[in-house]
Design a protein around this nucleic acid. Structure first.
Length: 155
DNA sequence: GCCAACGTTGGC
DNA sequence: GCCAACGTTGGC
């Protein structure tokens, strides 16, 4: 069982959108970064828990939790010329991009702000607070996951 | 909208 | 394989 943080822009798709999906489930597609792809393809498994992080918006931070309900499989949008995520160099016999399915678990009463996270002395490993913070899929160490969950609960 | 911090591309 | 130019991300 692993813990992750997935970034999303809530103006496009946020925690509330996940909540209102059929089955509260959504394929997490459109990831076009190789390091993030490798996580989705090789390491994210069913039962893993995911912080849904809102970026490029008014209140930047962790908005809630989702559960992985399907492990890595080819991201269909790479083959669709109509899609924003179409990749002309991708082919079905050797898919380049992968996605997982996530299901809504919990929406925090208040978004846990990036500012707060950065100020916590306990949070040292999480990619958000380090260089290379632009990664859209990143692992969360278990102790830091617990720390952030507790804080969000008491928010 | 600015701009720093990346990641990717492509000529050589 | 190097690296300059370019594109993107994302907080502010």
């Amino acid at each position: 069982m692993n813990y992750w943080l997935f970034k999303t822009e809530p103006d496009t798709f946020g925690i509330d959108d996940l909540y209102s999906r059929p089955n509260q489930t959504e394929p997490w597609d459109g990831v076009r970064n190789y390091q993030a792809r490798n996580f989705l393809r090789d390491e994210v498994v069913v039962g893993d828990e995911v912080f849904i992080y809102h970026s490029s918006c008014k209140v930047v931070g962790i908005a809630g939790i989702a559960t992985v309900v399907k492990a890595g499989y080819p991201d269909e949008t790479q083959f669709d010329p109509e899609s924003n995520y179409f990749d002309p160099k991708a082919n079905r016999s050797n898919p380049r991009w992968f996605r997982v399915d996530v299901k809504f678990k919990q929406r925090f009463t208040k978004v846990l702000p990036l500012k707060t996270i950065k100020a916590l002395p306990q949070i040292t490993q999480l990619g958000l607070v380090k260089k290379g913070h632009r990664l859209s899929i990143m692992p969360v160490p278990e102790n830091e996951w617990q720390c952030l969950c507790n804080l969000a609960e008491s928010n």
